[in-house]
Each structure stands twice: as structure tokens, then as C-alpha cells.
């Protein structure tokens, strides 16, 4: 096999990079919070496909005539052709107001494709966010249990760290760029959780197999083994993420407007998932597993 560059030896760079993104994201998140969609914040969200480029002033005047005055920043433009207007209201719209909006939309925008309007009361919003957090935590717990049985606890913990890393990166990116977080975002994070673990396991499985073939005697042996396993699975890691990314990017570019944020979260998460499996999960496992072993040949970077 060709000589490849030593991934695990440069692990501090990768740890540092991930830490930096996560810390910046968490600071933004802690100070400014998410740009929460109506699923998590009580209120209403009106999404109109106007069939023509959105003129915010026109949409505003329409809402004014509907008896629902809104501020400039309550209206955002979305969609590949900038033809979708999204208007947010802090109040819960009544069905009569919904009907008025639909009627006015038909009147003012002859090419319109109708609207999607959702309203959420504070009670439901609270319930939804609570369930979302629990879902991620419980999913992680079950995955740890499965991995601890099938592999060993160190693999399980390292995989979970990589998984949480991916979730954090996606959360950070959404917090930093003020992207709207709605219910589909939760579905995306959960998918990423599933994918990230899937990706990590294929590598861990190879490490496990190589451990059986050539049990390492020193830390140096172990480091070699991890490096070898990573490169043996590299083509697969890349090819797989390429195919899944093809699917996600196509959905992002051409799919329906309501899954736009969902697919964006997926794309960020997929890239992060592939990265963390190789550059985060395996080095963490190596450091942990190698602690009991004699050093062997010099490693270059002092042990962590």
C-alpha cells in the first residue's frame, strides 16, 4: 500500500479545529440563541409561493390590508428563484385571518401557487422543544448501549463523542448564520446522528478486525494499526459520503421549499460526520486505548 500521511499524529490539529468551531458556535448560541421557527416559538408562519420574484413592500402592503401589519424583518425571501415569501407573526392567527391571507394572495399575485400556514401555541412549542432534546439524548443512549455490547465501551464512547461533535457543529453553523431552526431541523440532526455513527462504525469495525489479526504490543504498534485501518477504509468513506451528498445536494437545490433548511442541515452534518469519523473518533479511541501500553518507538508529539 502507498505511503499515506499520518492522520493520528496530527490529531491535535483536528481536535483544535473542531473545538474552535464548536466554541465559536456555542458562544453565538449562548449569547444570541437560535433563530427559532414557529415550531419552537409560539406564533404563526405564513409561507407563500408567489410564482414571481418577491417584492417585500408588496407583501407588506398585502398583510396591512389583511389587518395584520408586520415589520420589515418579519418577511424573508426564500426559494431557488426568490419566489417564496415567508412571513412570521408573533400571534397565533385565527382561521378567519388565514382565509383572508389566502384570499388576498390570490387577488394580488395571479401566478401564486398557494400558501402553507402554520400556527403554534406556546404550550405546543414548549412541548416540542422538550421532546426534541429528549429524542437526541435517548437515541445516543441506545446507540451507546448497542455499541458497548457489539464492540467495547471505549469504541462506544469515542463514537458518541464524534456524534455529539457533529450535532454541535450543525447547531453551531445554524446559530452562527442565523438559519431558521424548525421541527425538520430536529429530524436532520437525528439523521446525522444515525449517519455519523454508521460512518464511524465501519472504521471501528476495521480496527477491531486488525486488532485480532495483529495484536499491538506497544503504543507505536497501535498507532500504526489505527492509521492503517483509516487508510484501508478511506476509499469507502469518501465514496459513501459522495453518494449521500449527491442526494442531499440535489434535494437542497431542487427539492421543495419546506425541506430547504432540513437538507442544508444534512449537508453540513454529512460533511462533519465523515470528517469526525476519521479525524476525531479514531484518534480519541487510540489515545484512550493506548494509555496502558508501553510507548515503543518515539511518537513525535508528546502523549495527550
Amino acid at each position: 500500500m502507498k505511503v499515506h500521511f499520518d492522520i493520528v499524529r496530527r490529531r491535535h490539529w483536528f481536535f483544535g479545529l473542531s473545538l474552535a468551531i464548536t466554541v465559536v458556535g456555542l458562544i453565538v448560541w449562548a449569547t444570541m440563541g437560535f433563530n427559532l421557527g414557529t415550531d419552537f416559538k409560539a406564533g404563526s408562519r405564513v409561507q407563500m409561493d408567489l410564482g414571481q420574484p418577491v417584492d417585500i413592500a408588496q407583501v407588506r402592503s398585502m398583510m396591512n390590508d389583511a389587518g395584520l401589519p408586520v415589520g420589515q424583518d418579519a418577511i424573508t425571501v426564500a426559494g431557488a428563484n426568490k419566489q417564496t415569501a415567508v412571513v412570521r407573526f408573533p400571534q397565533v392567527l385565527t382561521q378567519a385571518q388565514v382565509a383572508t391571507i389566502n384570499r388576498l394572495e390570490k387577488q394580488r399575485f395571479p401566478n401564486q401557487h398557494g400558501s402553507s400556514i402554520s400556527t403554534v401555541s406556546p404550550f405546543v412549542a414548549q412541548e416540542t422543544s422538550r421532546k426534541a432534546v429528549w429524542a437526541v439524548l435517548l437515541a445516543s443512549l441506545f446507540i451507546v448501549a448497542y455499541l458497548a455490547v457489539r464492540f467495547e465501551y471505549r469504541f462506544a464512547i469515542a463514537a458518541i463523542i464524534a456524534l455529539l461533535h457533529d450535532a454541535f457543529i450543525v447547531i453551531s453553523v445554524f446559530a452562527m448564520f442565523r438559519l431558521e431552526v424548525d421541527l425538520t431541523f430536529v429530524a436532520a440532526v437525528l439523521t446525522i446522528v444515525g449517519y455519523s455513527i454508521n460512518d464511524t462504525i465501519v472504521i471501528f469495525d476495521r480496527i477491531r478486525e486488525n486488532l485480532k489479526l495483529t495484536p499491538p504490543k506497544t503504543y507505536h504498534d497501535l498507532q500504526e494499526l489505527v492509521n492503517r485501518s483509516l487508510w484501508q477504509t478511506m476509499t469507502r468513506s469518501i465514496n459513501t459520503v459522495v453518494t449521500v451528498l449527491i442526494a442531499a445536494v440535489m434535494l437542497y437545490l431542487f427539492g421543495g421549499q419546506s425541506i430547504h433548511n432540513f437538507t442544508l442541515a444534512l449537508i453540513v452534518g454529512l460533511v462533519s460526520g465523515a470528517y469526525s469519523s476519521i479525524f476525531i473518533a479514531s484518534p480519541i479511541w487510540l489515545v484512550w486505548r493506548g494509555r496502558g501500553l508501553p510507548r515503543g518507538e518515539a511518537e513525535g508529539v508528546p502523549g495527550a
Binding site: Q47, D49, Q95, V98, N102, Q112, H113, G114, S115, S116, I117, S118, T119, V120, S121, F123, V124, T243, I246, A247, V249, M250, L251, L253, F254, G255, G256, Q257, S258, I259
Partner: peptide, 29 residues
């Protein structure tokens, strides 16, 4: 406590867009 209204045309537009995107993705794969 919560409601969602989707106009029938908008639903069809989303369906068509997502189907085409899926088809393009499958072809590329």
C-alpha cells in the same frame, strides 16, 4: 393549539420539485 394549512397547489409544486430532485440524485448516483 396549532394548525397547519397547505394550499393544494403548493403541495403539488413541492411534490414535483422533490421528485425531480430525487430523480436527478438517483441518476447521478
Amino acid at each position: 393549539v396549532s394548525s397547519m394549512n397547505v394550499g393544494p397547489t403548493l403541495g403539488m409544486v413541492s411534490l414535483r420539485a422533490t421528485l425531480w430532485a430525487g430523480l436527478a440524485a438517483v441518476a447521478l448516483i
